[in-house]
Simulated assay, not measured.
Amino acid sequence: MVKMVDVARLANVSTATVSRVLRNPESVKEHTRLKVLNSIEELNYQPNVLARHFRRNKTNTILVIVPNIANTIFSQIVRGIEATASEKNFRVLLGNTNRDVEKEYDFLNLLHQRQVDGLILLSGKIDHDILSELKDKYPLVLASEYVDDVEIATVCIDNIKSSFEATEHLIKQGHKRIGHISGPMNSLLSFDRLSGYNQALKEYHIDESKDLIREGDFSYETGYQQMCELLILPEPPTAVFAANDEMAMGAINASKKKGLSVPKDLAVVGFDNIRFSSIFDPGVTTIAQPAVEMGNIAMELLLQKLDDPDFENKRITLKSELIIRESCGSNIVETSQ
Score class of each variant (00 low, 15 high):
M185A: 05
L260C: 07
V66N: 02
R33V: 10
I206A: 08
V155Y: 02
A83V: 11
V2E: 02
S320Y: 00
F241T: 06
S123T: 15
A239P: 05
N57L: 13
E82G: 06
T32F: 03
A153L: 10
I73P: 04
F107I: 08
D307W: 05
K257G: 07
A166D: 03
R79H: 13
L63C: 01
S14L: 09
E102H: 12
K137F: 04
N253F: 09
Q226N: 14
K257C: 08
N198G: 11
R275K: 14
V155R: 07
N60D: 11
E30Y: 11
T61F: 09
D158G: 09
S330N: 14
I120Y: 00
K137T: 11
A248Q: 02
R99F: 07
R91Y: 11
L93N: 05
L201G: 03
L10K: 06
C156Q: 15
V64I: 13
Q199L: 15
H53P: 04
I40K: 09
E293G: 12
N24E: 13
S162Y: 02
A143Q: 01
A298H: 02
R9G: 01
Y138R: 08
A143F: 00
P290M: 12
N60I: 08
K256M: 13
I65A: 01
I178H: 02
V116P: 00
E26T: 12
E300P: 03
A254Y: 02
E102L: 11
L94G: 03
L260H: 05
A143V: 03
G250W: 04
P263Q: 13
I81D: 00
R56D: 11
S144R: 11
D245N: 10
S209G: 07
E321L: 09
P47L: 13
T335F: 12
L108Y: 01
E229P: 05
L50R: 13
S75T: 09
L94S: 04
L134N: 01
E42M: 12
P25H: 07
N198T: 10
V116W: 01
E293H: 12
A239W: 04
R99E: 15
E87W: 06
I40E: 02
K29W: 05
V268K: 10
V147E: 03
E102W: 08
E30W: 09
G259A: 09
A16Y: 02
F164R: 11
V150Y: 00
F54Y: 06
K88M: 12
E26R: 14
E246D: 13
E104P: 04
E203D: 13
D129Q: 15
L201Y: 03
L22R: 03
S182L: 11
Q76D: 15
R55K: 15
N296W: 14
V292F: 06
F191G: 12
S255Q: 06
F191Y: 10
A85C: 06
I332D: 07
F280D: 00
L318G: 01
R177G: 09
V262L: 09
P237S: 09
V292I: 14
I160Q: 10
